[in-house]
Simulated scan of single mutants.
Amino acid sequence: MSDKKTLPTVLRGWVEGEIGAVEHIRDTASPRGNARGWEVVRADRCRFFLKVSPHPVAYERETFALRHAAPALGGGRAPQLRASSAHHLALLTTGVHGRPVPEIPLTPAEEYETHRQGGLLLARLHAAGELTGHRRLEAEQELYTTAEDAGRLLDQAGGRLTATEHGLVRRLAEHLRLAGPLQLGFIHGDAQPKNLLWSQQAAWVGFGRARFAPVVQDFVRMACGVWDGRPDLRTAFFRGYGRELTPQEGVALKCLAALDAVTALTRGDTHGDTHNDLHVSARGRRTLDRLTAGVFA
């Protein structure tokens, strides 16, 4: 194994000081991610997950999420924080029963129920935490900041977009500056099927991008991905969530989808050497095609 995949001795010592002797270690980090991660298993077969965040902001976000928001999902519906170390930027969590939705065969009824429960759990998460002070200010400013980044994204995309598509994205970014009022809450930040586990009940994992923001941002990845061509799953999700999008959120979702598409095309084409990279690029292209044809919903 490479040094990046091997659990450093100092981290192993910290983990064993928290949970006891570790018998088995398995690297779990994504090949494209900046975070490092391992599954650690004790002799009693109890599983834990160790994650080393790529930078202090990600560590602080995930620590806050696991301490103050994720517990609102209920037992077994999110990891529980066992220990954290600001010095190592490390978080040690309990394991969650289940496997990522894309990795398991599901019947249509199970797919529907997975998305219904996923929506239910995100509604609980969005209502968690105390939105006050600087957190409220940051949440209120987030869409404006996102719109400000559109020019840089389009410059990076270059010829991957047609002139018509460049113009469309710029117009939608301008609309995003004016969007509102929008419901604010504590969002997951990376709500997509790979972070949704299923085993008779749903659970969310992967809180490294969690923060207070307009809740509509938690619907972008699914609207651009798994819900494309599957309106039944979208219906299931919002049935669990407890409400549909407001008209303002519908506009904001379309604008955010355009920016997500540009990011996906650029990221996928820049790497372009794995099946996942090709999938990311294809997602961006489909989203732009839907927006151009006026059929994005």
Rank of each mutant, 00 (worst) to 15 (best):
S85F: 05
H87F: 09
H87T: 12
H87A: 13
H87R: 14
H88C: 00
H88T: 00
L89Y: 01
L89P: 01
A90D: 06
A90Y: 03
A90P: 05
L91G: 02
L91S: 04
L91W: 01
L91D: 01
L92T: 12
L92N: 13
T94D: 13
G95A: 15
V96W: 09
H97Y: 07
G98A: 09
G98V: 06
G98N: 07
G98P: 07
G98M: 05
R99A: 15
R99Q: 15
R99C: 12
R99P: 08
P100D: 10
P100E: 11
P100V: 10
P100G: 12
V101S: 11
V101P: 04
V101E: 07
P102R: 11
P102E: 12
E103T: 14
E103Q: 15
E103H: 12
I104K: 15
I104A: 14
P105L: 14
P105W: 12
L106M: 12
L106D: 07
L106E: 06
L106G: 09
T107Y: 04
P108L: 08
P108Y: 06
P108S: 08
A109P: 00
A109R: 05
A109H: 03
A109I: 01
E110L: 04
E110W: 00
E111M: 11
E111C: 11
E111A: 12
Y112T: 05
Y112R: 10
Y112F: 07
Y112M: 02
E113D: 08
E113S: 04
T114M: 04
T114N: 03
R116G: 04
R116E: 06
Q117L: 01
Q117S: 03
G119P: 01
G119D: 01
G119E: 02
L120K: 04
L120G: 08
L120Y: 07
L121M: 03
L122R: 03
L122S: 08
